[in-house]
Design a protein around this nucleic acid. Structure first.
Length: 270
DNA sequence: CGCCAGGACGCCC
DNA sequence: GGGCGTCATGGC
C-alpha cells in the first residue's frame, strides 16, 4: 500500500481493496454509495469524522478532503491498511472453497469499527435483512443529526420511544444493551481485550445478544479476527463445503475468512 | 400472497 | 444439551 497527499486529498494505491466489496458486504451499514465521476464513491462516518472516498479504478482510491495526519491517524487504521491482505489470501487459498471466494471478492478488508456502534447495529441485524438494517440505523442516526447516538443518549430511551425505528422486537434489546453499557456493567473497551470466551460471556449478558451477535461485535467492532459469526449463509457453507469442520490452520483469522465466504455465498448468483 | 432475513429467547423434553 | 414456536418488520 502506498499513498500521497495532493491538493488536500489523499490518493491511495492498494491492490487488495475494493470499495463495493468492503463497504457493502454486511460488516458496516452506514456507507452510502454515489455515482459520479469515478467508478464509485461512498460517503460514511466513523466516530465523529465523515469521509468521502472514491474508487478511481481497480486498486486506486481518493480520500477527499483528508489531511495526511487524519489519514495516518484515523483512516489508515479504519481500513486496516497495516495488514497485508495478499498474505492472508495466500493462506486462505490453500483451502479450495476459500480460494474461490478470494477470487470472487478479493477486495474485502475487515474494517476496524467502533464497538458500541457495532453492538447496537448487530443487535438490530438479528433475523433481519441488510437493506432493512440500514434503514433502521439511518432512522436512528437521523434522530441525532446524522451521528450515531452514544450510550448515555440511548439509555434514556424506552422500547416505546424507539418506535420510530420500526425495529420490532429488537427495541427492548437496544434498551437493555444501552443501560448495561451506560451503567458500566459492561465495559466494551475492557471486553475488547479479554480472553475471547470471557468476552463472549460478557457480551451475552445483554438480553438480545446471543452467539451470533456476540461474534459479530467481537469481529467487526473489536477486531478479534478469530471470532466466527455463523449466520444462515455461513451455516449453508459449513454444511455444503466443510462437513468435517472449518480448517484448523485458519483459526486465528477465521473471521476474515468467514467474511469472504459470506459475501461470496450471498452475492455470487446475483 | 408467502418466504425469508448477519437470531435470541422461553419452553419443552 | 438440542428442537421448536414465537417475536416485528418489510424486502423480494
Amino acid at each position: 500500500m502506498d499513498y500521497f497527499s495532493k491538493n488536500g486529498n489523499i490518493t491511495v494505491h492498494e491492490p487488495d481493496f475494493d470499495l463495493d466489496n468492503t463497504l457493502d458486504c454486511g460488516q458496516a451499514f452506514r456507507w452510502k454509495k454515489f455515482s459520479g465521476d469515478y467508478e464509485c464513491t461512498y460517503i460514511g462516518t466513523f466516530l465523529n469524522d465523515s469521509l468521502k472516498i472514491s474508487q478511481v479504478k481497480k486498486g486506486e482510491f481518493i480520500f477527499h478532503d483528508v489531511s495526511e495526519d487524519d489519514f495516518k491517524n484515523k483512516w489508515f487504521e479504519y481500513f486496516d491498511f497495516g495488514t497485508d491482505y495478499s498474505e492472508l489470501k495466500k493462506m486462505f487459498s490453500e483451502d479450495e472453497t476459500l480460494a474461490k471466494a478470494c477470487q470472487y471478492a478479493g477486495g474485502i478488508r475487515l474494517l476496524k469499527q467502533n464497538p458500541w456502534e457495532c453492538l447496537i447495529s448487530f443487535i438490530i441485524s438479528q433475523n433481519n435483512n441488510i437493506p432493512r438494517i440500514k434503514g433502521i440505523i439511518e432512522r436512528l442516526c437521523g434522530n441525532y443529526s446524522g451521528r450515531f447516538p452514544n450510550p448515555c443518549e440511548l439509555a434514556e430511551e424506552t422500547p416505546e420511544s424507539l418506535s420510530y425505528l420500526r425495529s420490532g422486537f429488537r427495541a427492548r434489546y437496544i434498551c437493555d444493551a444501552s443501560e448495561r453499557v451506560e451503567s458500566g456493567e459492561i465495559d466494551l473497551q475492557e471486553t475488547a481485550v479479554m480472553p475471547i470466551d470471557e468476552a463472549r460471556k460478557n457480551l451475552k449478558k445483554i438480553v438480545g445478544v446471543g452467539d451470533k451477535v456476540a461474534e459479530c461485535v467481537l469481529l467487526f467492532g473489536m477486531y478479534r479476527t478469530e471470532a466466527f459469526p455463523k449466520d444462515v449463509w455461513i451455516k449453508r457453507v459449513l454444511e455444503e463445503y466443510y462437513p468435517n469442520g472449518f480448517p484448523e490452520f485458519l483459526k486465528d483469522y477465521a473471521g476474515i475468512a468467514q467474511q469472504y465466504l459470506f459475501h461470496y455465498m450471498r452475492t455470487k448468483s446475483e
